[in-house]
Design a protein around this nucleic acid. Structure first.
Length: 263
DNA sequence: TAGTCTGTTAGACA
DNA sequence: CTGTCTAACAGACT
C-alpha cells in the first residue's frame, strides 16, 4: 500500500487491533522478510504488548513495551490485513490477536520488516532524511526542497516531501492543471506553491476518508471501480473536458494526464 | 507464449 | 546537482 494514505489506513487499523494487546502465534513465514534483527528476537518482540503505532511517510512504526520498535515498509505490493493463517497466499509474517489471524502480505516480496531498539530509530537513515509530512509542509518549504528540477521527480523523492507516490503525482498534477513534465521553475509565485502543498495533503485526506477498511484493495487486485480521476484511465474521456486521457513515461514511471487541462 | 507492466527506492552511472 | 537506468521480485495482463 505504498502511498501515504494506505499506510495511514493500516496504522489506524493496527491501533484498533493491536495496541495494548499481545499477539500470539507469531510466525516468520518468510525469513527473508526480516532484513534487520534476529528471527528469534523478532518473534519475541512481536509477541510482547504493542504500545503504539506511528507512521512517517510510507514507513509504519510499531512500538512494543519492551523498548523495541519494528518498522514495516510495503514497497509495491505489501500490506497488513486479516488473513487465514500461516498458509495464506503471499503471507510473510503472521500472528493472531483475539483468535483472529493477521498477516504481512506481499506478493512481490519487495517489502520488508526491520527490528530496532527504540533508541536506535533516530539513527535510521530513511527517517532522518525524510521530508516534512504533507500536512506540515508550507509552500515556501516545498519550493525550496524541490528547487528547479523536474517536479514529478522531486515529489517522488521522499527527502522533499514524505509519502508521495506515483498515483498521487498523476492525480495532484491533474487537479492543479500541471503537465507531467512541469519543472520547479515553472511554478511561479508563493500562491502556486501553497496550492500545490495543499492539494497534496487534500489528496491523501480523501484517500484515507474514502478507502478506509480492514483491507486496502489495490487497483490491480480486483478493486471494483477505479476511484481516481486520471490514474489508469488512459484512453478514457477527461471528466472535465472530454479529451482522452494520455499516458506518458516521465521520470521513468507512467504519468496519466489530460492533454487539454494540463498544458 | 513471451513480452510488458506494476501504488518503491537505493545505488550506479552519465 | 540532475536525470536516467537498474535491480530486488513475482503476478497480472496483452
Amino acid at each position: 500500500m505504498p502511498e501515504l494514505g494506505e499506510v495511514e489506513i493500516v496504522r489506524q487499523n493496527l491501533i484498533r487491533w493491536w495496541v495494548n494487546k499481545s499477539a500470539k502465534d507469531v510466525t516468520l513465514v518468510d525469513t527473508a522478510a526480516l532484513t534487520q534483527g534476529e528471527p528469534e528476537e523478532f518473534i519475541r518482540v512481536l509477541s510482547s504488548p504493542c504500545v503504539g503505532v506511528r507512521r512517517r511517510g510510507k514507513y509504519l512504526i510499531l512500538e512494543f513495551s519492551d523498548d523495541h520498535a519494528v518498522i514495516f515498509h510495503f514497497r509495491m505490493t505489501g500490506k497488513i490485513a486479516p488473513c487465514t493463517g500461516v498458509d495464506d497466499r503471499f503471507v510473510r509474517v503472521a500472528w493472531t490477536l483475539e483468535d483472529r489471524w493477521y498477516g504481512f502480505m506481499d506478493a512481490r516480496r519487495l517489502g520488508h520488516v526491520e527490528l530496532f531498539l527504540a533508541g536506535e530509530l533516530q539513527n535510521y537513515g530513511p527517517l532522518i532524511r525524510m521530508g516534512p509530512e504533507p500536512e506540515d509542509i508550507d509552500g515556501a518549504t516545498l519550493q525550496k526542497n524541490v528547487g528547479k528540477r523536474g517536479l514529478k521527480n522531486a515529489l517522488l523523492d521522499q527527502r522533499v516531501i514524505a509519502g508521495v507516490g506515483n498515483i498521487a503525482v498523476s492525480e495532484v498534477f491533474y487537479r492543479q492543471g500541471l503537465p507531467p513534465t512541469a519543472k520547479g521553475s515553472d511554478l511561479v509565485g508563493s500562491l502556486a506553491w501553497d496550492n500545490l502543498a495543499k492539494a497534496i495533503a487534500e489528496f491523501f485526506d480523501e484517500v484515507i476518508e474514502e478507502q478506509s477498511s480492514d483491507e486496502v484493495i489495490y487497483l490491480n487486485q480486483g478493486a471494483l471501480e477505479n476511484p481516481f480521476d486520471v490514474y489508469k484511465r488512459e484512453g478514457l474521456p477527461c471528466v472535465r473536458c472530454g479529451q482522452l486521457i494520455r499516458r506518458d513515461k516521465v521520470a521513468g514511471r507512467s504519468s496519466y494526464f489530460c492533454p487539454s487541462c494540463q498544458s
